[in-house]
Amino acid sequence: MKIDIILAGVGGQGILSIATIVGYAAVKRGMYMKQAEVHGMSQRGGDVQSHFRLSDQEIASDLIPMGKADMIISVEPMESLRYLPWLNPETGWLITNDQPFVNIPNYPDFDKLNAELGKLKNKVVINADKIAKDLGSARSANMVILGAASPYLGIPFEEIESAVRENFARKGEDIVNVNIACLRAGKEFAEKL
């Protein structure tokens, strides 16, 4: 089994915690993992991405070849589209938050952006911000996104759940529970589509 994911977002949105959690679950299963991150200049509110690769065989490249990614997981809608050249045009899935992060003057028109997302064959477009806020933790939108991606990851949901538990354990039981709730809400949303 092999899965290649592009994680996308804006510097400071916390895409790396998604990778940390999936990575933890994958490594526990004895899978190989490579994850190329972006540090430095772009972290100041610029676009950031991470190439995240899992496999039961050894992985050669730290970067995913173009056209070969199985999934784009994004916490921002325009950013999700930036990496389409990497997504497998037939079988790839795009999972993204639909809430724009506007920190540039020329951000595209929201309707046009949604229309562009609508054109894609395999997609989950979700208002993760609202779901997370309704569940009482606006900061956990990334866990909603992870939940929405979970049916396509090829890792049993319970194992992702326990990785979330593990990741937030030192922050206390309440934080763990709200993040699990967000994860589950994302999963339910994706499964209803």
Partner: peptide, 19 residues
């Protein structure tokens, strides 16, 4: 060579900025 879909035209650069 392999390639996915092109980047849609409406995607604009998001340069880093002062916080």
């Amino acid at each position: 060579d392999t390639y996915g879909a092109p980047i849609p035209d409406l995607v604009v650069p998001r340069p880093p900025a002062l916080c």
